[in-house]
């Protein structure tokens, strides 16, 4: 099956996510690929970044030689604190999520279901070392949960599914899924596909997903 369309790069996906986070928001960008969203936030907007290990007002990575072991993000990478930043302990940090104070979080995923169920902490493999970190707290904590992922696995299996087969991180918690093929809104009426990759048709996307997808009205 030849594909006459151009998949979005990770950077292009990050730009889409960043454009949808409004000025004045508090946001958590998870670990791994979603952290790239921070580099794509538009000039002139103030978005305060939260990292669950106890910092609001997280800034970019420090210049070489200025790393501080006491100043890192949830991915255990060195970061900086911007003017106006604050530090707090873990119970306060998770109260910011669980208590509904955090506006957005962006997470990676193994699978997302059409109902917005999220699977991103455990592949389900029997000999895997389980580790959950803050994923389950973030999944149910932010007011809007965005997922950023490739639509297909390396083997070509669609990760947007009717029902998750990997262990769940959260139930009906995802609002929007940004992928290299399209953006998907999880709505009560069904999954709305929009902003398809250049050259990709709605019908071809439905075939790839094996799902009935709605068009944006």
């Amino acid at each position: 099956m030849s594909q006459d369309f151009q998949r979005l790069s990770r950077r292009e996906i990050a730009i889409r996510v960043a454009a949808d986070i409004p000025d004045g928001s508090y946001a958590n960008l998870g670990i791994g690929a979603p952290t790239e969203v921070a580099d794509c936030l538009p000039e002139g907007v103030t978005i305060i970044l939260h990292t669950e290990n106890g910092l609001l007002g997280m800034g970019p990575k420090p210049p070489p030689g200025e790393e501080d072991v006491d100043l890192m993000n949830a991915g255990k990478q060195y970061v900086t604190a911007l003017p106006g930043a604050s530090y707090f302990h873990h119970a306060d940090s998770f109260a910011m999520m669980r208590g509904g104070h955090l506006d957005y979080c962006v997470l990676g995923a193994y699978q997302v279901s059409v109902k917005g169920d999220l699977a991103n902490w455990h592949t389900g493999a029997k000999d895997a070392i389980p580790a959950v970190g803050g994923a389950m707290d973030l999944a149910i904590g932010a007011k809007s949960v965005f997922v950023m992922m490739d639509l297909l696995t390396k083997k070509g299996v669609c990760k947007l599914v009717e029902r998750c087969t990997s262990p769940l991180t959260g139930v009906a918690c995802v609002r929007r899924v940004y992928t290299d093929h399209a953006t998907f809104d999880i709505t009560p009426a069904g999954v709305v596909a929009h902003d398809l990759a250049p050259g990709l048709t709605h019908e071809a996307l439905e075939t790839l997903c094996g799902l009935k997808l709605l068009r944006k009205s």
Binding site: H90, S93, F94, G134, G141
Partner: peptide
């Protein structure tokens, strides 16, 4: 889950007998 870990520790220190949390609802944990 990390937030439950922090809150369960906080609860112990604050003399709370138990609490209901939305985290992990519907999951293996």
């Amino acid at each position: 889950p990390q937030g439950n870990l922090a809150e369960r520790i906080r609860a112990a220190g604050a003399g709370i007998g138990a609490f209901f949390t939305p985290t992990a609802y519907g999951t293996l944990l």
